[in-house]
């Protein structure tokens, strides 16, 4: 896959590599632009940066991770979390939901509940977790359980920014629910310093179709 990287502040990189013990004290940013095969920005892509030196991984500050259920949809559609995170599934609809996942990364079930009655779910294994509702078959959502705390999700402009990255060598990869191929195929080696590094990723998206919200009533209309 054709890709290119623009490095800003590369002047500092060589210095940082020579002074590795100091690198953790310097924080940089990675800005990623994700486009599809038509050149259009890709929303809801998860961009991940894994340091080559795993010692650079710092435990992230605790955050409250939430996947809402609003108007019988999961919001956000894609939620990236760091492995070991708890995720809350508040139901803001006036009907009850029954959230479940069959995914190997996390099999779980939150039987019928309303409001904030469901306990948070621990996502302790990296991977993709597909969410569904046993009552409303069209509801679908994704939790991406990341093996690195350095990740961000693209917005509608296809841009994602990963901040506070310790300087060092990183393998950057991208995941999207509709991507063709594997995350591994998107891997790129980047060197990050104390400044902003930008990268662009090209994803090939396959056409996907979700269960429609409305269905017919076949068999009811025979005269």
């Amino acid at each position: 896959m054709k890709s290119f990287t623009t490095r800003v502040g590369s002047y500092f990189v060589a210095t940082l590599l020579l002074a590795a013990p100091l690198s953790a004290s310097l924080a940089g940013e990675l800005h990623a632009l994700v486009r599809d095969q038509k050149g259009q920005p890709v929303v809801d892509a998860v961009v991940l940066a894994m340091p080559t030196d795993r010692r650079l991984i710092e435990a992230p500050k605790p955050t409250r991770n939430i996947v809402d259920q609003i108007n019988k949809e999961f919001l956000p559609y894609v939620k990236p979390v760091y492995v070991g995170s708890l995720v809350h599934f508040p139901n803001k609809d006036n009907v009850r939901h029954h959230v479940y996942s069959f995914s190997p990364a996390k099999k779980f079930e939150l039987p019928l509940y309303e409001g904030a009655a469901a306990p948070p779910v621990l996502f302790d294994k990296p991977g993709v977790v597909v969410l569904g509702c046993n009552i409303h078959d069209w509801m679908i959502g994704y939790i991406y359980v990341a093996d690195t705390p350095y990740f961000a999700k693209t917005g509608s402009d296809g841009l994602a920014a990963i901040r506070a990255l310790p300087a060092g060598e990183y393998v950057v990869r991208v995941w999207h629910p509709d991507m063709e191929g594997t995350e591994q195929a998107t891997m790129k080696q980047l060197t990050l310093g104390a400044d902003v590094v930008t990268t662009e990723q090209l994803l090939s998206l396959k056409p996907t179709f979700h269960i429609p919200r409305q269905s017919g009533s076949h068999g009811a209309g025979y005269h």
Binding site: I211, P212, Q214, G216, H218, G219, Y222
Partner: peptide, 22 residues
């Protein structure tokens, strides 16, 4: 008594086709 067999195909997000026999 009636026996009805049917199938539905979602051709698009808002387009549903159905066919059946009875």
């Amino acid at each position: 008594q009636t026996l009805i067999l049917g199938t539905e195909y979602a051709a698009g997000a808002g387009l549903l086709l159905s066919a059946g026999g009875f």
